[in-house]
Every structure is written in C-alpha cells, then in structure tokens.
C-alpha cells in the first residue's frame, strides 16, 4: 500500500512562507543535533583562579541546553576534592598578571604566608563583587546535571581514594572521556 500523495495548493505558498518554514525546520533540526548539544571540558589546573573558568563555562554550556562533562585531571582534581576550599589557592609568585593592592617586589610576594594572604584576598574580592564561590558553582553544575569525572589514573598517581572526592563525582579514564568528547562540537582544555 502506498500513502496518498500530499497535495498542497502551490499558489498559496509564497516564497517568504517557504523561507520561513525552511528556517524553522533547520533550526529545530540543528537544536536536536547531538554535537551541538554536547560539551566536553578538561580541567587540568588546581589553583583558585584556574578553578573558575571550567566551572563557569560548564554551567553556561548547561544553561544553553548542552549536556556537559568535565574531566578533572592532574591538579584539576583539587577542584572536586572534598577539601577544595583548603586546596585551591593562588600564588602571586610567577604570576605577573595578578593585581596587587600596592606594587610589591617579587621577593616580598615570595615570603612565607603570602600564598594564603593572596588566596584570602582573591576570595574576598570575588565575594565583594558577588562572584559565585567555587562551592556554589559546583553545586549549580550538579543541579544542571553536569557530569563531573575525575581521572582515575591521576587519582592513583596522587595517592587519593575515590572517597576523597565530592559526592556524585564519577571516575573514568581518558578513553571514556574521549568517547564522549568525539560526539561534542565543543571541547575545551583548561
């Protein structure tokens, strides 16, 4: 049995109608494209300043409708460690871009205790400007169903246990991450 051919009154469709219909259909099809809806981010750094970009971008990607996975590897593991508050610090040494309240010679910034001073300063500055804390960004990411994946190899190398990490963190290898990443138009290495 063959379906009845669909007959439409060709004269009733203007060129504008056709353009609009094609645009709508294309838009719908593109929104359903897996590549456009999937994102894969690698978080490889373990300092307070570098913890922000992967989390902010993961949240923003989830907000625009993407399924996002963040792969935490090497020092990036600090971000999803239960003690991330204590572990994430910022060091003015070797970071000439870091703004100082007063100009300071490198020798001063290298003094003991400066790392915790700088870390406290940065947290306060961010809090004053109402920038979310790392904890808030992680919590929002989880609410958005962002997958947080810790690299099993570096977990072992650093002598961590799976129980050292936040609840909901998954564990996986590079190949498992790549299997996800190959489907994504968006892949970022931070």
């Amino acid at each position: 049995m063959t379906a009845e051919p669909v007959t439409t009154d060709q004269s009733a469709l203007t060129e504008d109608d056709v353009r609009r219909i094609v645009k709508e259909e294309l838009g719908t099809a593109l929104r359903k494209d897996t590549g456009m809806r999937t994102g894969a981010i690698v978080a490889s750094k373990g300092t307070l300043d570098w913890a922000y970009p992967p989390l902010i971008l993961a949240n923003a990607a989830a907000a625009v409708g993407m399924q996002v996975s963040v792969f935490f590897t090497f020092y990036g593991l600090n971000i999803v460690h239960k003690e991330f508050e204590r572990k994430l610090k910022v060091d003015p040494v070797g970071n000439p871009a870091m703004p100082m309240p007063v100009p300071m010679p490198d020798l001063v910034t290298a003094m003991p205790g400066m790392v915790s001073v700088a870390s406290r300063m940065m947290k306060k500055k961010f809090a004053d400007k109402k920038v979310s804390s790392i904890g808030e960004l992680i919590e929002t990411a989880r609410e958005m169903d962002v997958r947080l994946i810790a690299c099993q190899m570096t977990v072992d190398v650093f002598g961590y246990e799976q129980s050292d990490f936040l609840d909901g963190v998954e564990f996986g290898g590079a190949a498992a991450f790549m299997a996800e990443a190959r489907k994504s138009n968006l892949t970022l290495f931070v």
Binding site: A62, A63, V64, K130, V131, E136, T140, M144
Partner: peptide, 15 residues
C-alpha cells in the same frame, strides 16, 4: 540582581 556571570542565566534556566 547583584549576581555575576554565569549566575543570572543559571537562575533563569532553573526557573
């Protein structure tokens, strides 16, 4: 109001 990027869109998404 007062929230910084990306929190306004996150709040909008949740709503």
């Amino acid at each position: 109001r007062e929230l910084m990027c990306p929190m306004p869109v996150m709040a909008a998404t949740k709503a």
